[in-house]
């Protein structure tokens, strides 16, 4: 299956399919991009029901003002021999709310599974809220799984390093946010789409209250 990118902009919400099945030997690579001015619930259920199958689910979000966004992933490995990787990075500013619920289920007898999940969040304002809830349900024993979730602020040392090179504080913060989101954009295979999205994301960051 191809590398699918779903972009949610104000007035143009291209939502990903709520439920996808991935069969023997197939791979799914999906990226979700949520730009400021959007409030949405985004459920993503993937049933990995074949072996030698791989799933990559990536996403980035930028929320500002009173945006309210939830991403709810539900990856179910039902047979042996597949992998899934999830990476969701995002930045909440203004009075926005973001939540991430990420479930990985590995059925009994679904052995030799690798399933990884990462959700990293940065709060740019004291009034923004982020909830992150990873959930692993593992009923098999020969599997490799991990999840990691962080909520933090922009790194002060990084900011000072840039400012000491003459980069003004606001510009340093913009670069930091770009840097933070870059691993998600790096997962988009189509080079020209990746470049145009990087530009759009950068423009949106510049409009946000950093």
């Amino acid at each position: 299956m191809a590398n699918e990118v779903y972009i949610l902009r104000p007035g143009s919400l291209r939502l990903p399919p709520e439920h996808v099945e991935v069969h023997d030997g197939e791979s799914l690579n999906m990226t979700v991009i949520v730009l400021p001015g959007v409030s949405a619930q985004i459920p993503l259920r993937v049933d990995v029901c074949g072996s030698n199958a791989s799933v990559t689910l990536n996403g980035l979000y930028l929320t500002d003002a009173s945006d309210n966004v939830s991403i709810i992933t539900d990856i179910r490995h039902t047979v042996s021999g597949s992998t899934s990787t999830q990476l969701f990075n995002g930045v909440a500013s203004g009075q926005s709310r973001f939540s991430f619920f990420g479930k990985i289920l590995i059925a009994q007898d679904a052995q030799k599974i690798e399933a990884y999940q990462t959700n990293r969040n940065i709060l740019l304002s004291q009034n923004a809220t982020v909830d992150t809830k990873p959930q692993l349900e593992i009923y098999a024993d020969d599997v490799k799984c991990s999840h990691g979730a962080t909520v933090g602020q922009l790194n002060a040392d990084e900011q000072f390093y840039m400012r000491s090179r003459g980069i003004p504080e606001v510009e340093a913060k913009v670069l930091q946010v770009i840097s933070f989101l870059s691993p998600v954009l790096a997962g988009i295979e189509d080079e020209s789409l990746r470049a145009s999205l990087a530009e759009e994301v950068e423009n949106e960051i510049r409009k946000m209250s950093v």
Binding site: D157, Y161, L175, S179, S182, P183, A186
Partner: peptide, 11 residues
């Protein structure tokens, strides 16, 4: 010149 130069991924 920093004692511990900072890493900036993506830049």
């Amino acid at each position: 010149s920093f004692q511990y130069p900072v890493e900036i991924p993506g830049v």
